[in-house]
Structures are given as structure tokens and as C-alpha cells.
Amino acid sequence: MKILVPLKRVADPDNANKVKVAGTKLETTGLEWKPNPFDEYAVETALRLTENGAATKQRQGEVVVVSFGPKEVEATLRAALATGADRAIRVDVTDDKLDGDLVARALKAIVEKEKPDLVLCGKQAVDGDSNQVGQLIAEYLGWPQATFAGSIKSEGAPGKETALVVHREVDGGTINLKVTLPAVVSVDLRIVAPTSVKSVYTADGFKYPDGVRFAALMAIMAAKKKPLVEEKIETLAADTALKIEYLGFELPAARKAGVKVKDVAELVTRLKSEAKVL
């Protein structure tokens, strides 16, 4: 199976407090960048679907990672190659020239060229929380989709997988469904639990370590030699005008200090008269 994984770098969520609002823009200079965690889960899922969990050195398919951005995002792509992805594509463009719709249309062009069996993405990026690219690609390609996957099992013969059984996490439970390949699937965080992904190569009952895999030193060295090609956004999308315009950003209001109450009686009174929750 050949899998395409779109990968976005986001400002390190641990340093989110350093993001400054400057008019209608977010000031991102000086921030540290990290792969979007949900996209890292998607890479891990793609690797698990293209290997036997008990013999991960032997690749049983192909994982192509794609990212949009300036030269620096190649570090993010190389990191994905170091964990096991086979090839990388960087679409040369700056963040301010992108919206979710343009990314989805450019990805459609890449999919038509690469012909993967599956587009696997994180359910959303943790910076803008837009949660739209996966759904838009499915629409533009006319492919079936399953969003918020908490577990995935591939079906069919090795090398000729035909469908995925996906458990989708929704409020109050899970929805189990089967999507015929080719398809688009977006993953939620539980997808990296030890038994969440089962490929046709992996034995029943096999358990992965929890979470995404570490890049091994030799793999980091080898990743430098893996193919990484550059594409131009203009050749992928005829119309590069943005359809979504950010008008402004506001930081959440600072929390006000609380009050100390003397006793339960005062608490009940305040809950009734001020908070009006009783």
C-alpha cells in the first residue's frame, strides 16, 4: 500500500505563550517549530500500515510525506524520513500565501500524480485548529473518508489491500465503518495506542510501544540520502488566490482573581445571587 501523509509544522505548543498578535497577523519569528502532533500520529499510523510490527526494518509499502513551506520545513520532513517514511515532497510557498482550501487543492494535484491508495492526515493542526484539509481533499478527489480515526485495520491481500476498517471516535462512543480504498482518513490521538493499528502483515495480538516511534541514529543518517523533491505551488494549483482571509486574532481575556468565601452559606448565596447557577 502506498500512503501519502501531509505534514505541517506548527509553533511549539510548549511555547504558545510567546505568540504575539500583530494586527491581522500572528508574529511567528523566533518561535521553535515542531511537527503538528496529529500529523506525527498520521506518520506513525502510515508506518504501521506498511510493515509487520514484529519486523519493522522490512518495509511493506511506501509512505510519502508532503509539507508546504519555505526551505526550513525540510527539517520536519527529514525527521519524518528518519522515523521511516520513504520519500518527501516540499511544496515551496510561505505560510501567509496558504489557506486550507489551497492546501487541499494542491494536495489533490499531488495525489493525482503520486496515486497513493490512502491519504492519511492528522485530524487537525494544533495551531489554527481549522480541521478542514482532510475533508476538503476527500471532496475534491471524490474519495470516501473517515475522520477522527481511533483505530485502523487494513483488509485484503498483502500488497493488495482493498479496504480499511476504521473506528471513529465521536462524542459518547465510537462509530465503526469500512472504507474502500483509495480513501482519505484523518487520525485522532488514540491511533498510536499499542494495538490501534493493524496491517495485513502484522500478527493478531501484536503490541506496539505506546506513542510514536523514536528516530534511530542510523535512520537519521540514512534519511539524508532519502529522496526529497521540491514542487512549486503554482504548478500544482492554477488558482492560488486565497479564499479564506484572517481578519484578526484575539488572545483569551486574562482570568480574573477569584474570591475566598467564609463558609458554605456564603458560597451558596454567591452561587445563587452572583453566579446564578443554583
Partner: peptide, 14 residues
């Protein structure tokens, strides 16, 4: 360098 960054990142994760 990118190499040094990826060494640091990978060791850090582990």
C-alpha cells in the same frame, strides 16, 4: 546544522 538539530530532537524525544 540540521544534523545537530535532528540529533538533539531525536535524543530529546527518547
Amino acid at each position: 546544522s540540521d544534523d545537530h538539530k535532528s540529533i538533539r530532537e531525536s535524543v530529546r524525544t527518547l
